[in-house]
Amino acid sequence: MSITFKEVEHTYSVDTPFAYHALKGVNLDIKKGSMTALIGHTGSGKSTLIQHINALLLPTSGQVQIEDVLITATDKPSSLKSLRKKAGLVFQFPEYQLFEETILKDIIFGPKNFGVSEEEAIKIAKDMIQLVGLDESYLERSPFDLSGGQKRRIAIAGILAMNPDILILDEPTAGLDPQGAKEMLQLFKKVNQEGKTVVLVSHDMNQVLEYCDDVVVMNHGRVEKHVTVAELFKETEYLTSLSIDLPIITSFILELNKNGFHIDPSIKDINVLVQEIGGQLNE
């Protein structure tokens, strides 16, 4: 197991009138090499949960194990740096973290903090900027001259340049245009297929269906479900109770089935669906 939570509780501002119990007895095992979606309403504890993965937050009680590093309320690992390198966290709207004069300097900032030499880091930066869909001519430009979407790519390149084993993304496509969002997700899928564990916080069930293997559903600070994507979208009533919309393709199949078709609702791909419909029409 790559990421393990055992009875993790987290309370913000303990012992003040502002105290807020954000995580309540969270148990979770996220498989190494999986692409796991984390869904749930605003305030359900998603952001709190992911910040435990690279020890930005420490559990109030319980324990978190990230590969061989154990984090509990009292003994935090002597060096958080190795953990931060292992688990790269991309915050929501990560473009806010840009600060250097040039994009190159900003991308190599992370790797250099983790002890990568300057030359090596520049080499990585050149790879990363292409990976996120921009070209090398951008490296000498100021990150503040770019559009919002481009800034986002640079910020993500800055995290990928650290070469983390686990990549955690908090709504990475919020505010991006559909094409940009698609490219981002394909990038994360590619990173995942290269063997990295990816945890993706998302509100878009279409993304969850298309790109993720497993889903963790959070509600009121608890992990309510940890199932495969196919299993989750079978439970239409449960999802309705949380007012989570089904992916467009799934709800379309369910509508078809109501009207006499017999199509497997776990179909993810539009082309497969088209063939299936065609086949059943010919029968």
Partner: peptide
Amino acid sequence: KAQASRGV
């Protein structure tokens, strides 16, 4: 937090 995630 964002910069701490980048090793600061």
